[in-house]
Amino acid sequence: MEIGTLIAAFLTLCIFSFLYKDNPFYKFAEYLLVGISVGYFLVTAINTTVMPKLILPLFRQGNLVYLIPGLLGFLMFTRFSPKLSWLSRISLALVIGAGAGVSIPAVMQAQIMAQMKASMVSLVSINGIIIILAISTTLIYFFFSKEHKGWFGGTAKIGIWFLMVFFGATFGYTVMSRVSLLIGRMQFLLGDFLGIIK
């Protein structure tokens, strides 16, 4: 058996041991996961971004334009100093401003306009009636400037039912997802580790 399989099986059992109760083996595996994830991200970011997008163009090619993003990136680290932390706002302002400018039109188009267009369906079909009913009653539920009483409250209540259906479906999918993760580990333990299944 490969050493990697043994380590993976040991760590899987360490994590599963939490189901009995919290213990040092679980904590060890948990901290190891957090540490490795951060370390992996850091190395990947340095290798794929900092080196090719800043260090190499600046020092190997002598392209001084890269000093500007380099300086802006460096300013983010001033947050560690209470006296100089205000400088990081310059970089943050650029990130937020550019990010909002780029995102707002695209998000408006994809997540609001296109979705609204898709909901304006024909009332002839059963699906169309359900969609219109679900959207209007759910929107009424989220209208808080009028007290939810009388016909308005009754309509909002129908909206709650539609929301409950959505939450139920989402929860069902969540259960399915978590069971899938367990199946993955079981396949590993019973197959690769113990060799019971192929």
Binding site: F166, A169, T170, Y173, T174, M176, S177, R178, S180
Partner: peptide
């Protein structure tokens, strides 16, 4: 292709 938890 998304995990089931994200499908809805």
């Amino acid at each position: 292709a998304v995990t089931a938890v994200m499908a809805t």
